[in-house]
Design a protein around this nucleic acid. Structure first.
Lengths: 186, 186
DNA sequence: CCATTTAGCTAAGTACGTTAGCTGAATGGC
DNA sequence: GCCATTCAGCTAACGTACTTAGCTAAATGG
């Protein structure tokens, strides 16, 4: 039997792809194994079962999203930054519909690595509000508002909850514009 | 063997309760059957398996939520209506954390009953914006903004994604206030 | 009181994740 | 280049959950 030459990162990467292609509840070890040219039990040499696999995808997804958002924020501030990051956020979510819901989950208790990457993700959003010079609770409330509007739109959009045939791009732009206005007058 | 005297509505109601108590992926037929004093296969006399059970819970949840929101809107308009309905929405979601995600899902293709109750739910939100006299696409965009902000906040809150120990009630009030302001200037 | 219907049952099948234990491919020291 | 060691991937088998088939007895109605 020739070896497949798998490693942990490769298994997780392929799983993340299948997750995006087949939806949040369409990921299973049999299909993943087949996609990698291997039998299901072999996956346990690289990943700690389904829970470990999901955790691996989650860490990778949060890190990847944080990177994308950080990229979009470079050299921008205030409205400019918010618009750019908002669109990067939506683009990432639409490109990764299976992984996206994982990026929203709070870090698991006692998982230091998850806590670390989660706070990195949160801080990107927090940072782009720094240009508005909000203090303490104001900053927290504003961050929550921004996250709520973005996540809400994206969650509804990716679950096809916006039924009407009216341009989604424009709707999103108006959401972002409304948020910017609200923050300006916060 | 004495009969348990179940019916479809009773099974679905109990399942909805278990769903709220044990979380979205903690619902299983074995526990449901035991909770009803019956063996798992007996459930199939009242419900078409797990898919049928979930559909039943979903229809019931959407109808119940629509009723709660309609109630909150009675005799109110504009800001008054939005604040009242927003709080009713959040209260319902927090009281039904397991069912809530179901209420967001678009109706299944070809499911007329689902389509009906879903549109009833959507129209409640749409109606409370009628006081703002928005036209066509403006009304659609505004509805999407309102839904995004509310759903986003609630989804993040119920998944513990708001980590910081800062008052959630106040944050929510400010989200609602921001939405009202945005709609006023839409 | 009997005929019919049907709620609930047991037994068995399927699908999936998982564990145990084996085997042969890769690897490193000599 | 050879051998000992490591370990990737395998088959077999188990547990759990949903589901189907087919039986039985409780309810119902004439």
């Amino acid at each position: 039997m020739p070896r497949a030459g798998l490693d942990s990162a490769g298994v997780i990467e392929r799983a993340a792809r299948l997750l995006d292609e087949h939806g949040s509840d369409g990921l299973n070890l049999a299909d993943l194994a087949e996609s990698l040219g291997v039998r299901a039990p072999s996956l346990y040499k690289h990943v700690e079962g389904m829970p470990g696999l999901r955790r691996g995808i989650l860490l990778r997804a949060k890190a990847d999203l944080a990177q994308a958002l950080g990229q979009a924020a470079i050299g921008r501030s205030r409205e400019d930054a918010i618009v750019s990051v908002s669109h990067a956020y939506r683009d990432w979510a639409r490109a990764h519909p299976g992984q996206y819901p994982m990026t929203v989950r709070a870090p698991a208790d006692g998982d230091a690595e998850d806590a670390s990457v989660s706070s990195r993700l949160a801080s990107v959003v927090f940072e782009i509000l720094s240009g508005y010079r909000l203090q303490d609770d104001d900053a927290v409330d504003a961050t929550r508002f921004l996250r709520s509007a973005l996540h809400g739109f994206i969650a509804l959009e990716t679950s096809d909850a916006f039924a009407l045939p009216v341009d989604l791009d424009r709707s999103f732009d108006r959401v972002v514009a409304s948020v910017v206005t609200a923050l300006t007058n916060w």
